[in-house]
């Protein structure tokens, strides 16, 4: 890959550049771009230490890690941690919970901003449109702790939601203590947090649709609804596909930061996912190798799905991540 780069330079004096050995080119490049490399040094150091460091450390998944022996010194044990996890009592529960929450996210959370963007685009009153946008972006900036704090307060046995239910003769529900409610609460609060902010990118895509397409559709007698279906949606399809691939790439990882705040042992039955289990096992119980193995299992599946999804998208159309 590195050999591709100097070609632009070589255009000036092709016969000389092509003949130069690799080492000379490296030296010249360093001399010419010394300030560039000076700037890059801390950036490369950051990625090497804090991003690739943990990737190096993931080898403890195949080891019996003890803090005394360190990452390198610990004894290799192969796939034992993985098989222990696959046979574990919690394995299927974790897989089921993770996949179900991800699936509900794909079905309910993913399309919500697309729908909102389409509806926002149909608002004729520009002022009303702006106000709606401003207000719906807002939850994106509220911290997770506060969002879950609001949930805890509104959904408590004496909270606002139960007060309203009571007024209509409903029974009191302790929402956050019942595992049957967890997914509903997780997904609907997720929509609340992301729908507005997520719509920005689709609105931008809609703005770029060629107005002539709409004119042609009007001449053909298409109504507004028809135009949304036949013009707008196909036009923003590339954006939808890109974001869908990215979403698929995190199929096996659910937003654990929110779940850790929301769940409790009573709701583990539906709320405990791979990443929250890794947190409990790894950080709270200090089973480092075992939880690193689960984390790696998770990451490898995600990465594989991302690559497959991207390949499929590329085959089906011209849209793909790379």
């Amino acid at each position: 890959m590195a050999f591709l780069q100097p070609k632009t330079k070589a255009e000036h004096i092709p016969f000389l550049k092509k003949k130069e050995p690799f080492r000379t080119r490296v030296k010249k490049d360093f001399k010419r771009n010394k300030y560039i490399y000076l700037m890059l040094a801390p950036v490369v150091a950051y990625f090497a230490i804090f991003q690739f460091g943990p990737i190096y450390g993931v080898q403890i998944a195949f080891k019996n890690f003890t803090p005394a022996d360190g990452i390198w010194g610990s004894q290799w044990i192969g796939f034992d941690q993985f098989t222990a996890f696959f046979k574990s009592y919690y394995f299927w529960r974790l897989i089921r919970n993770t996949l179900l929450i991800s699936l509900y996210e794909l079905i309910f959370v993913f399309p919500a901003p697309i729908l909102l963007a389409l509806l926002l685009n149909e608002i004729r009153n520009m002022k009303f449109k702006r106000v709606t946008q401003t207000l719906t972006y807002l939850p994106h900036f509220i911290s997770l702790v506060v969002v879950v704090g609001l949930l805890v307060d509104f959904l408590s046995p004496n909270g606002l939601v139960n007060q309203i239910l009571h007024a209509f003769g409903g029974k009191q529900i302790n929402f956050l203590q019942e595992s049957g409610w967890f997914r509903t609460i997780y997904i609907s609060s997720e929509i609340w947090q992301t729908v507005g902010w997520g719509s920005i990118i689709y609105l931008a895509a809609i703005t770029n649709v060629d107005p002539q397409l709409y004119e042609a559709a009007t001449i053909d007698g298409a109504g507004r609804f028809r135009k949304i279906i036949s013009v707008t949606i196909p036009s923003i399809m590339p954006t939808i596909i890109i974001l869908f691939i990215l979403q698929l790439g995190s199929l096996m990882s659910v937003g654990y930061q929110k779940i850790i705040l929301m769940y409790n042992p009573l709701t583990y039955d539906t709320a405990d996912v791979l990443s929250t289990y890794v947190y409990r096992k790894g950080i709270l119980d200090a089973s480092y190798s075992y939880s690193a193995a689960i984390g790696l299992f998770d990451a490898v599946i995600n990465f594989t799905i991302l690559i497959i999804a991207n390949r499929l998208a590329r085959k089906a159309g011209e849209t793909s991540l790379w």
């Binding site: 890959m1 590195a2 100097p6 943990p54 990737i55 450390g57 950080i283 984390g295 990465f303």
Partner: peptide, 25 residues
Amino acid sequence: KVMWSRPIMLGIVFTMFFSGGLVPR
């Protein structure tokens, strides 16, 4: 015209899609 910028860029993009995970971090 910076020779190593492409490999560095690839490395950075890679970290967006794959990470060592919580425990190694």
